[in-house]
Amino acid sequence: VTTYKLVINGKTLKGETTTKAVDAETSEKAFKQYANDNGVDGVWTYDDATKTFTVTEMV
């Protein structure tokens, strides 16, 4: 189990959250659901070296 981080650069929501998951794909699903639940829709990137997802909304 690995800890993954999500950085949110939204128009109205900014911040970070973490989750523990067995792999990046599992954490990505959880993070995308979290973003969707909070009305964040944007461009996703992933940095495997830091286990960090970033979602950026276009303004």
Score class of each variant (00 low, 15 high):
Val1Pro: 10
Val1Asp: 10
Val1Phe: 14
Val1Glu: 13
Thr2Gln: 13
Thr2Asn: 12
Thr2Ala: 11
Thr2Met: 11
Thr3Ser: 07
Thr3Gln: 09
Thr3His: 06
Tyr4Thr: 02
Tyr4Gln: 02
Lys5His: 12
Lys5Trp: 11
Leu6Glu: 03
Leu6Gly: 02
Leu6Asp: 03
Leu6Lys: 02
Leu6Cys: 06
Leu6His: 02
Val7Lys: 07
Val7Leu: 08
Val7Gln: 06
Ile8Arg: 00
Ile8Gln: 00
Asn9Ile: 14
Asn9Pro: 02
Asn9Met: 11
Asn9Asp: 09
Asn9Ser: 06
Asn9Ala: 08
Gly10Pro: 01
Gly10Thr: 15
Lys11Asn: 11
Lys11Leu: 15
Lys11Thr: 13
Thr12Pro: 04
Thr12Met: 09
Thr12Cys: 15
Thr12Ile: 11
Thr12Ser: 09
Thr12Gly: 09
Leu13Asp: 05
Leu13Lys: 08
Leu13His: 12
Lys14Ile: 09
Lys14Pro: 06
Lys14Glu: 05
Lys14Arg: 11
Lys14Cys: 13
Gly15Tyr: 15
Gly15Phe: 15
Gly15Thr: 14
Glu16Val: 12
Glu16Asp: 06
Glu16Phe: 12
Glu16Thr: 13
Glu16Gln: 10
Thr18Gln: 10
Thr18Lys: 06
Thr18Ser: 11
Thr18Arg: 05
Thr18Met: 09
Thr19Ser: 08
Thr19Ile: 15
Thr19Val: 14
Thr19Gln: 09
Thr19Leu: 15
Lys20Met: 14
Lys20Leu: 14
Lys20Ile: 14
Lys20Gly: 06
Lys20Arg: 12
Ala21Met: 04
Val22Met: 12
Val22Cys: 13
Val22Asp: 06
Val22Ser: 11
Asp23Lys: 04
Asp23Pro: 00
Asp23Gln: 03
Asp23Ile: 02
Asp23Asn: 12
Asp23Tyr: 03
Asp23His: 04
Ala24Gln: 13
Ala24Trp: 15
Ala24Glu: 06
Ala24Tyr: 15
Glu25Tyr: 12
Glu25Trp: 10
Glu25Asp: 10
Glu25Phe: 11
Glu25Asn: 09
Thr26Asn: 07
Thr26Phe: 05
Ser27His: 01
Ser27Asp: 01
Ser27Pro: 04
Ser27Met: 06
Ser27Trp: 04
Glu28Pro: 01
Glu28Thr: 04
Glu28Tyr: 15
Lys29Ile: 11
Lys29Arg: 13
Lys29Ala: 11
Lys29His: 08
Lys29Val: 09
Lys29Tyr: 07
Ala30Gln: 12
Ala30Ile: 15
Ala30Cys: 14
Phe31Gly: 00
Phe31Ser: 01
Lys32Gly: 02
Lys32Asp: 01
Lys32Asn: 03
Gln33Lys: 14
Gln33Phe: 05
Gln33Arg: 10
Gln33Val: 09
Tyr34Asp: 01
Tyr34Arg: 00
Tyr34Lys: 02
Tyr34Phe: 12
Tyr34Trp: 15
Tyr34Ala: 02
Tyr34His: 04
Ala35Glu: 01
Ala35Pro: 01
Asn36Met: 15
Asn36Leu: 15
Asn36Arg: 15
Asp37Ser: 10
Asp37Tyr: 07
Asp37Val: 08
Asp37Ala: 11
Asn38Leu: 15
Asn38Met: 15
Asn38Phe: 14
Asn38Glu: 07
Gly39Ser: 06
Gly39Val: 03
Gly39Met: 06
Val40Tyr: 05
Val40His: 04
Val40Cys: 05
Val40Glu: 01
Val40Leu: 10
Asp41Cys: 13
Asp41Glu: 13
Asp41Asn: 13
Asp41Trp: 13
Asp41Ala: 11
Gly42Ile: 02
Gly42Thr: 02
Gly42Arg: 00
Gly42Tyr: 03
Gly42Asn: 00
Gly42Phe: 03
Val43His: 09
Val43Tyr: 10
Trp44Gly: 00
Trp44Lys: 01
Trp44Val: 01
Trp44His: 00
Thr45Asp: 08
Thr45Ile: 08
Thr45Glu: 11
Tyr46Ala: 00
Tyr46Val: 01
Tyr46Ile: 00
Asp47Phe: 04
Asp47Glu: 06
Asp47His: 05
Asp48Phe: 08
Ala49Ser: 13
Ala49Phe: 10
Ala49Tyr: 09
Ala49Met: 11
Thr50Asp: 04
Thr50Tyr: 05
Thr50Gln: 06
Thr50Cys: 05
Thr50Pro: 00
Lys51Asp: 02
Lys51Phe: 09
Lys51Ile: 02
Thr52Ile: 05
Thr52Tyr: 01
Thr52Asp: 00
Phe53Ile: 02
Phe53His: 03
Phe53Arg: 00
Phe53Met: 01
Phe53Ala: 02
Phe53Asp: 00
Phe53Tyr: 07
Phe53Asn: 00
Thr54Cys: 06
Thr54Asp: 02
Thr54Ala: 04
Val55Cys: 09
Val55His: 01
Val55Ser: 00
Thr56His: 07
Thr56Ile: 08
Thr56Gln: 06
Thr56Asp: 09
Thr56Asn: 08
Thr56Val: 07
Thr56Arg: 04
Glu57Asp: 08
Glu57Gly: 05
Glu57Arg: 02
Glu57Thr: 07
Glu57Trp: 07
Met58Tyr: 14
Val59Arg: 08
Val59Gln: 13
Val59Lys: 09
